[in-house]
Amino acid sequence: MLTMQTAAKRVPTFTNKTDAGEAPILMASRCRSHRIGTAEIHAHHGEIVQGVFYSSDGNLEHALVTLPCSLYRARARFRPVRSGPLTLEPAGRWRAKTAARLTLDALGRTGWGGSLQIESNVPIRWGCGSSTTDVLVTIRAVADAFNRVLEPEWIARISVAAETASDSLMYGPERTVLFAQRRGSLLLELGGPLPPMVVLGFNTEVDRGVETLSLPPIQYSSWEIEAFRAILGMLRRAIEHQDPWLVGRVATASSIITQRHRPKRFMPQLLRLSQEVGALGIQVAHSGTVAGFLFEPGNETIGRIQHAQAGLKSLGLDESCREFSTAP
């Protein structure tokens, strides 16, 4: 979500959208002005679903459905200079730096530099997309500096090139998409936002996390691969009918399969607690340490959340409890 969109007209930036890996063809740009580009984006809280899914041509793809989370945000400011170094503050976020370079190249500004500042409160190594948000907010800020708004498909492509795995935050919370995170492409448009739900999120590891990008892809069993078909069928229905109850079932099912490969602490207790407190289900960061109980918004939500918090306290997981909503 760009905070500055003052361009008088938005020209489509690229024409070639088909050949992955090729340098995008830049439309002849008449706009020579540049300015300080800014952007802001919110992070996510792991996924509703992550697994493998058949593409329309029958190939299996690793893909996910992200759970957007407005609690955590990243902001970027980019001041371009025609020739000079590319500096980054805070230093060390090399993926963001790579993304800035790739974006400058994609905009036909190879050789430009500038100063990029990132501010972020996204926790690192929790599976909330700290590195993706850095990358996305960088791409948007750099594009904004040249009065450009990039299509999500192009942002996805640059972001995958910059960090090898990604999530679907560039599509925004208005669209739920099944996103092939390793290829950076959309596998299926699910046709709407997630239904409004209240999420009670927490970190299952309290003080440590995982380096998500170093994790190899999960090798799912043949049974599990087909199980994701049923999960996807139910998820499509959940989005089409805006049914939070079904989203809870789908998220729980995906969490159960992931638990076999990347176990989270206390999962059996958390599954029981989810039922006891009347949650819709449990979602996890499939490559991260956060998890969340999903609740239907309503009169009973406050009581249920208090009940869940008490249960989390007995497991020693209450320190990191945060509440947020999927409603816009």
């Binding site: 043949s222 199980a227 078909r229 049923a230 996807l232 069928g233």
Partner: peptide, 21 residues
């Protein structure tokens, strides 16, 4: 062959999408 029961994942997907639980 365990792929016999597994082949019905496609049917479960179809039913879940069309009818729900």
């Amino acid at each position: 062959n365990p792929h016999n029961p597994e082949s019905y994942g496609a049917c479960a997907e179809h039913l879940a999408h069309a009818v729900g639980p």
